[in-house]
Simulated assay, not measured.
Amino acid sequence: MLSTGALRAHLLAARLAGVVATSREESLRSYRLFAAGDPRVLIGIDPEWAWGERDVIGLMADKCGVSADPHHRSGHDVIDPELTVAALEVFAERLAVAARSRATVLLGTGHPHRLLGFYAALADALSAAGCAVLTPAQGRCVDITTRFGLRTHNLDYVRGVALVREPGAPRPGCATGAHTHSPLPVRTALAAAAEAGGPLPELVIGDHGWVCGAGQLGFEAIGLADTDDPALFVGEAEGRVSVVVPLDDAVRSDYYLPLTRYVLNRACLSQ
Rank of each mutant, 00 (worst) to 15 (best):
L224T: 08
A132T: 14
V66Y: 07
H10A: 03
G139I: 06
E53L: 01
W210Q: 04
G223Y: 01
Q138T: 13
P185M: 06
G239E: 03
V204W: 02
L95C: 11
E82I: 04
G168I: 15
G215M: 01
A35G: 09
L150R: 15
V85E: 12
A14W: 10
R15A: 15
P112T: 10
P230V: 11
V133E: 15
D62Q: 14
P170E: 13
S30T: 07
S101L: 12
L200C: 06
L83T: 10
R32Y: 10
S270L: 15
L257W: 13
L259F: 09
S67T: 12
A103H: 04
R165A: 01
A128K: 13
R252Y: 09
V158P: 00
C131T: 09
I79S: 03
G37Q: 09
A103M: 10
D55M: 03
V243H: 01
R94D: 13
L126S: 08
I205K: 10
R15L: 11
E48N: 12
L232V: 08
L247I: 14
D228S: 13
E238M: 10
E195I: 01
P170H: 10
S270G: 08
E220S: 11
D248I: 07
A250Y: 15
L257E: 14
A137R: 05
D124V: 10
T176K: 04
L33P: 11
R171N: 03
M60E: 06
V211N: 00
V66W: 10
C64W: 15
L28D: 02
Y256I: 00
L12N: 14
M60H: 06
D207T: 05
D226V: 02
P81V: 08
L122D: 03
R102H: 10
H181M: 04
A237K: 09
G58A: 13
L16N: 12
F148I: 03
C212W: 00
A193P: 09
G139M: 05
S3K: 00
D226M: 03
E53F: 02
F233R: 04
I144A: 06
D143G: 02
R24H: 06
R54G: 01
A125M: 04
V19Y: 09
A189G: 04
L217P: 04
I222T: 07
P47Y: 10
V204F: 09
